[in-house]
Design a protein around this nucleic acid. Structure first.
Length: 571
RNA sequence: CGGGGCGUAGCGCAGCCCGGUAGCGCACCUGCUUUGGGAGCAGGAUGUCGGAGGUUCAAAUCCUCUCGCCCCGACCA
């Protein structure tokens, strides 16, 4: 690797103005600092400086993966579609998978991930429990035709992912591989200088029994997570649970009230001058062809991920006609009491053991008040199908939960035998029994690490790299490079640092001082060394920390000591 | 896929409503000056106005279609 670069020749096209199409901070800065350039929606070129950072991230990941005994593969991006049909994921991914015909008219897909390819290799080669466990990984481009690419590289259609796959003989083996990854991931994100946290997550399209996500709190994140600042409980909103903070306990007779044209929770609660939590939301769904009613408290919303977990994914809201047939009223006035046809009623825990509620009366323009859940409603089962609200109690310690947006940096899954069974990936155990391999799958989005880092480590002037990811450690700024003395000293320091293998960028361009300072701050190398005639008169140069703006005027013959000190001090 | 916005010089934008031979700032090239926070003066180059069709004597401007990009939503291993 070449350690010293001259800016006059190194290709770093910086932009003074913010590109119109970029909205989020990291996207704007990555464009302005010359890290990336867009080619099409969700498709980016990495320019030399951006690629240099990418390589640093990849190197960190490679070291930590190798450290847990993982072996790196290089796998094909071009896949015959048949292999994706074996696991039914051709249709699961659907339009999101890029497809095209080759010259022989076979359908080829661009791999969006690689479980199937790993399975194909494993089923061909793994025969015995003696061949296991294995951890295989790859750091490669994946392709997904996202319905809406956005936020620069955070959701792209082509992106680099570290993906690893564990192959074990049983659940205990999987637990171990899973823990190894969890530990490795913590080291990786810590080394990258990211303030991350781990949440329990939904397995979604991947399937499997357990999963955790490595998250970074950020307003621009697409995920919503629930956090307890007291005990550290954290979970994706899709699976998070909370404790009710307020309970409704008002005794009362069942009474019909006239609520003309008041259909929504908001309208009814305003009309009757009560809080939304005094109401019960009655929702009719059709699950596997059969209608059911779901009751949740008025101030909560249904969580479709939890619905899916409880009832499978074959459910939909009931149609107006179905509602009319069973309830005898229009949506907005339906409730669990006085149904024309009896259907199963599931009640969310948010209404358990409470009374004094208002529900639809199953009669247009009327509601019922004084409802006692225990007394008045025939409930099949209490379930948890609501989305946690901000301020709900932590399920572990009761402290108030926060609901925040977050960027998903990595995701680890216990897949179990879903793929190995459907693809016939088996081995013979010690007793000669044929058994399916137990798998795990573990991903990290490389670009997301870079974008997330910039979201967390940038100020109004630009990026503030840490030591681990900085493309260069030192940015040398000769104020007037045409001045002979300045040039002589700058070149001397430049060669000196080169010999010491300290990656250094030299701004030898013939531009005004302000221009160089602004660029240096934008590019964000941790240490700037400024060489100007002013300080040279006293045989001094200036060392400056990008992060704090602290500046040190050092004599030429002693600055190296200070530089070493600063290099050791910065994170 | 639904809703909204935008395509005019490399970048950021004005011009469009009200049709009449395309402009500003920055960047770029040449020369001189300048060098501690995006320099000054002088000169210069740069456009199929996203594309196609239509209306008109005449279209960046009006109409129709189309492509692209961004945002919100749906979706999101």
């Amino acid at each position: 690797m070449e350690w010293v670069m001259r800016l006059s020749r190194y290709f770093i096209p910086t932009l003074k103005e913010i590109p119109a199409d970029a909205v989020v901070k990291s996207h704007q800065i990555m464009l302005r600092a010359g890290l990336i350039r867009p080619l099409a929606a969700g498709i980016y070129s990495y320019l030399p400086l951006g690629w240099r950072v990418m390589r640093k991230v990849i190197q960190i990941i490679r070291e930590e993966m190798d450290a847990i005994g993982a072996q790196e593969f290089y796998l094909p991006a071009l896949n015959p579609i048949e292999i994706w049909e074996e696991t039914k994921r051709a249709s699961d991914f659907g339009e999101e998978m890029f497809r095209f015909q080759d010259r022989k008219n076979r359908t080829i897909v661009l791999a969006p991930t690689h479980e199937e390819i790993i399975c194909d290799i494993a089923r061909g080669e793994i025969r015995s429990y003696k061949d296991l466990p294995q951890i295989w990984y790859q750091i490669q481009t994946k392709f997904r035709d996202e319905p809406r690419p956005r936020s620069g590289v955070l959701r792209a259609r082509q992106f680099i992912m570290k993906d690893s796959y564990s192959l074990d003989v049983d659940e205990q083996g999987l637990d171990k591989s899973y823990q190894l990854h969890a530990q490795a991931y913590k080291k990786i994100f810590s080394r990258c200088g990211l303030k991350f946290f781990v949440v329990g997550a939904s397995t979604g399209l991947m399937g499997g029994s357990a999963s955790q996500e490595f998250m970074l709190e950020s307003e621009i994140g697409e995920d919503v997570v629930v956090i307890c600042d007291q005990c550290g409980y954290a979970a994706n909103i899709e699976v998070a649970t909370g404790k009710l903070k307020t309970k409704i306990q008002q005794d009362g007779e069942l009474t019909e009230v006239y609520t003309p044209d008041k259909r929504t929770i908001e309208q009814v609660s305003q009309f009757l001058n009560v809080e939304p939590n005094n109401l019960i939301k009655s929702l009719m769904y059709v699950i596997d062809g059969s209608p059911v009613m779901i009751l949740i408290r008025g101030d909560y919303t249904v969580n479709e991920s939890k619905m899916m977990k409880l009832f499978g994914n074959n459910f939909r809201p009931a149609t107006e006609a179905e509602v009319a047939e069973i309830c005898g009223a229009k949506v907005g006035f339906i409730g669990p009491i006085g149904l024309i046809k009896s259907i199963p009623i599931y009640a969310d825990n948010t209404i358990k053991n409470q009374r004094g509620f208002i529900v639809g009366a199953n009669k247009d323009h009327y509601h019922l008040k004084g409802v006692d859940v225990q007394r008045d409603i025939k409930i099949q089962q209490f379930i948890d199908v609501t989305t946690v609200n901000r301020g709900d109690g932590c399920p572990q310690c009761d402290y108030s939960l926060r609901v925040v947006h977050a960027i998903e940096l990595g995701h680890i899954f216990k897949l179990g035998t879903k793929y190995s069974k459907s693809m016939g990936v088996t081995f013979l155990d010690a007793t000669g029994q044929e058994r399916p391999i137990v798998m795990g799958s573990y991903g990290i989005g490389i670009e997301r690490i870079i974008a997330a880092f910039i979201e967390q480590h940038a100020d109004a002037r630009g990026i503030i790299w840490n030591k681990a990811l900085a493309p260069f450690l030192v940015h040398l700024i000769p104020i007037n490079y045409r001045n002979q003395t300045v040039q002589l000293i700058a070149d001397k320091i430049y060669h000196n640092l080169e010999q010491k293998k300290i990656p250094t960028l030299l701004d030898d361009r013939e531009v005004s001082p302000g221009f160089k300072f602004k660029d240096a701050d934008l590019l964000g190398m941790p240490i700037q060394i400024i060489i100007g005639e002013k300080n040279l008169k006293n045989q001094c140069i200036e060392l400056k920390l990008r992060k704090t703006n602290e500046s040190f005027i050092e004599p030429l013959d002693k600055f190296e000591t200070k530089l070493q000190e600063l290099l050791e001090m910065i994170e």
